[in-house]
């Protein structure tokens, strides 16, 4: 054993490139346990290199029609194929205009890596700091999962179960991500605090609609990088449905967020600093969106 496993070559595996979705599912039905799915490969290849994962098969799902593409239906929502690149999403006009928190998150990413990295990969890696997740959480994303046995839908907030832990069986794959049409008159925003690494130490996505009318007001907040799993704080929505001065509601929402998110200490930042950032930035982002015209 050597410190840090500083390998430059990959361990042995068999590279498999099915041509159709059916072939993918059949292969996974048979070899799912021993296979790793690869689209952009950004994480998989790195993990293999670092010997953090191993696989007999690497299944390349790039280029499979059903898994790609981006489709927007007015008043319904946006469907993104799991293998669509983050670059395509960053350049999407619909996302820029309607899902600005997601657009802002994508803009913070390595501008070359996103030509390979996919939305499916970003979600399935399930690291605390994955930037697309908090925006997708506030947009109430739903995932379409498929296997030979059939299809199922799962909300993103239920899909990520822990750090690098997801609700996906070895025979299943993430087919697409659906985000409903955002509420009317909504605005969204993404805040990312970079400290001394590539990853944010606190990432916040916020969505607000109808700020002045409590009966219709919608406020959603989700947090990444702060705790082992990205967190949507659903209680916030209820708080802002109440009739009370905004200052008071923001105060209340902030304390609920702090109770829910439970910040961590890791090599990038301390729990204490994260707690502080969540405290002030939650207020800041809420004010910005609640008081914008």
């Amino acid at each position: 054993m050597s410190f840090g496993a500083p390998y430059l070559t990959l361990p042995s595996f068999k590279y498999v490139k099915p041509k159709t979705l059916r072939e993918v599912l059949e292969f996974l039905a048979e070899h799912g346990e021993d296979a790793k799915i690869m689209a952009g490969g950004v994480a998989v290849i790195d993990f293999l290199k670092e010997r953090l994962t191993e696989a007999d098969y690497i299944v390349d799902i790039k280029g499979i029609e059903e898994l790609g593409g981006i489709k927007y239906e007015e008043n319904k929502g946006l469907t993104m194929g799991s293998t669509i690149t983050l670059y395509s999403l960053r350049e999407s006009r619909i996302i820029r205009e309607k899902y600005s928190a997601l657009h802002e998150a994508l803009k913070t990413l390595d501008p070359i890596l996103i030509h390979r990295a996919t939305i499916g990969g970003n979600i399935c890696e399930a690291f605390p700091w994955m930037d697309t997740v908090p925006p997708l959480l506030v947009f109430d994303a739903e995932l379409n999962i498929i296997s030979l046995k059939g299809k199922r839908k799962v909300k993103l907030k239920d899909f990520i179960k822990g750090t690098a832990e997801i609700d996906l069986n070895p025979d299943e794959i993430l087919e697409s991500i659906f985000v409903p049409e955002p509420p009317v008159n909504s605005k969204s925003k993404y805040v990312k605090v970079l400290a001394k690494s590539e990853f944010g130490v606190v990432n916040i996505a916020c969505l607000v609609s109808n700020p002045v009318d409590p009966s219709k007001r919608i406020v959603k907040l989700a947090y990444g990088a702060a705790s082992p799993t990205p967190t949507l704080v659903p209680q916030v929505e209820e708080i802002f449905r109440r009739e009370a001065p905004l200052n008071k509601l923001i105060e209340e929402a902030t304390s609920v967020v702090l109770e829910t998110v439970s910040p961590m200490t890791d090599i990038h930042a301390s729990e204490e600093y994260r707690r502080y950032l969540i405290d002030v930035l939650t207020r800041k982002i809420l004010f910005e969106l609640l008081t914008a015209d």
Binding site: Y15, G41, V42, I112, L113, R116
Partner: peptide
């Protein structure tokens, strides 16, 4: 990014691309 190439016209970092792909 020192290994950046254009793969079918798109920039990629070739240290995390399999040759087979």
């Amino acid at each position: 990014g020192a290994c950046t190439i254009l793969l079918n016209g798109e920039p990629v970092k070739s240290c995390i691309v399999l040759a087979a792909e």
